[in-house]
Write a protein that binds this DNA or RNA. Structure first.
Lengths: 342, 342
DNA sequence: TTGTACGCGTTATCAA
DNA sequence: TTGATAACGCGTACAA
């Protein structure tokens, strides 16, 4: 910049002004400066600019995994919106690991991010996050509904969503409902799902059987393996609720390979309503979460907080929908192959 | 830092040293400093540090879309490796749009990224990229095989991969092979795929029919729609080569909804070998690209370049594999329903 | 082992 | 409309 200033015969200050407030500099000078910048391939140093102005134009986005396409969508929406208002995205992936989450958070803070979008957080981090917020770091938690009123969030009710799917399965006369679920021991929103499942069972006086619940990371192969375990139980389930569509698709594959038929022999339900869910055979009955809306609202809220010094707290809880397709059917006693055999 | 220094009764320099070369400061002093940092919740300002040391510990990653799970994998691997060596990832998504690509590139440059990992680049950008490289910005292009020797890349031969799949379909006696393909008019590596297809046809003296080629962004719904178009042709294809698994899965769905059977009535082949490809019914025959290896090698090469002032140029071209599953079969005259009907 | 002085590339402030 | 000067928070060189 100093260099450009010399060539243009003006002060560095004027060059700086040419960038952030062009109207305050004489058009003539302005054009000359710009021309010289082009010619000398000058690139503005946003790092120095941020330092000097004590601002920041990067926001940190933390997600647990990028394998899942719902996070892909989220990333796209957020990055696009951020771009529009001149912000860049720093991305961190935790793998559901608390240590990594901590490290990334620390890294982002050191990088002076203007704000943070978290996808929930690991169990035991709430205190830390709260501290952050108190320090004045704009921060919105997405995909989760928090009890804490001090933290902004944009999410949905995981408990309720899982509850209603479980209840739907129960309404189909299922009593032995297997649950293949994400890392509930690590992440609050997944724990809420488990609680929703348990609560629905309880409501309908169905005893909770821990052997029907398997904790797995959301991936096809995990769903497949877990299903293998579940189906070899002495008293196997007649329905499988996989709290992630990937797990569900993996589960369906396992079931088919056992020579069983979905939903005739066993019902399978998912969670998320990813795009493929409708393309699977049979199309997957699942819970639709408003991924797109959440992503949009998250960045919107964050920008609002940034422009208000992190003061404004917003909490949005979107509705989820039960998407009934063809992978679940009513349980009729003794019909399923795997039960008959015994 | 100055503040911490005052409290600790040392100079700011010493505090600084306590962070990046602890061994040069007396243990006693070191511990005191660290304690005070904790107590005062001091967070290091990496932005200022980078500015001062004229280094940077963030690398820019540019991808066309996050919807595709192969990019998800890529992101995870790269972000993980980067994390390990203390680098942060800035993410940019171009949506296959040249203007956006330009803007993101510019933004990243202004942010003083230490290096760049590009997923190919839009047609017409090569000059710009080359300029970048000449300027000394460490830069590796992934997922593509470049003709240009001045640019580092870690990719595979898109031409060859498409060629061999097309040839495989031809070996199955198909002569009318529909091609549903990504934005080849925008992106070089997709164009290579198209050329591979054409070249294979030519080799086997099959005339190229433009009406059999449809350009779509890689998404389920696009594959579905494109297939609808293709199947209503006067002389419809007997095989569909979708140059992305998502397109292929969409295509299979369309085919099924027409009451046709894969592969009996029509063969469908994909590209990428995403995880679900094996879970679809019938399992998808596709081209496996070494996503994981490419991601790993990309970041490895980039780090190497960064440590060598961007001097070292590396070019890696990995092999792709034909994964033969069940979605393609030999074409026997007059057997397919949609041909019989006519 | 520690401190001083200076510079990194920009913006803010104030004065001209 | 423009410029001089002092920050911003840190690293580096050199001296002590």
């Amino acid at each position: 910049m100093k260099h450009i200033a010399e060539i243009a015969g003006v002060s560095a200050t004027t060059v700086s002004r040419a960038f952030h407030s062009p109207h305050t500099v004489r058009p003539e000078t302005y054009n000359r400066i710009l021309r010289i910048c082009k010619k000398n391939r000058y690139v503005y140093n946003a790092t120095a600019g941020d330092l000097s102005s004590k601002k920041s134009t990067v926001i940190g986005l933390i997600i647990p995994t990028a394998r899942n396409s719902i996070f892909g969508k989220t990333i796209m929406v957020i990055q696009e919106r951020a771009q529009e208002v001149g912000y860049s995205i720093m991305l961190g992936i935790t793998n559901y690991n608390k240590m990594i989450e901590q490290r990334i958070l620390q890294q982002f803070l050191e990088r002076q991010v203007a704000g943070l979008i978290l996808t929930g957080f690991c169990i035991g981090q709430e205190g830390y996050i709260k501290e952050l917020v108190e320090t004045g770091v704009p921060c919105v938690v997405r995909s989760e509904k928090l009890d804490n009123n001090d933290i902004s969030y944009v999410g949905f009710d995981n408990f309720k969503a899982a509850y209603s799917m479980t209840e739907y399965l129960i309404s189909l006369n299922h009593r032995r409902i297997g649950l293949i679920i994400g890392p509930f021991s690590k992440v609050g929103r997944v724990m809420s799902r488990l609680e929703g499942y348990r609560s629905a069972l309880e409501k309908h006086s169905i005893p909770y059987d821990p052997s029907l619940v398997i904790e797995r990371e959301p991936a096809l192969i995990e769903g497949k393996e877990a299903t293998g375990l579940l189906m070899t139980l002495d008293d196997p389930p007649t329905a499988l609720f996989a709290a992630s569509d990937w797990l569900a698709i993996g589960a369906m594959d396992a079931v088919k390979q056992m020579g069983l038929c979905v939903p005739k022999d066993i019902s399978v339900a998912g969670f998320d309503d990813i795009d493929v869910a409708a393309y699977i055979d049979p199309p997957l009955t699942t819970v639709r979460t408003p991924t797109h809306e959440i992503a949009e609202k998250s960045i919107e809220v964050l920008m609002e907080m940034i422009n208000n010094n992190g003061t404004a707290k917003r909490q949005y809880c979107f509705e989820t929908d039960l998407i009934i397709r063809k992978s679940c059917s009513e349980f009729k006693d003794k019909e399923p192959k795997h039960l008959k055999r015994r």
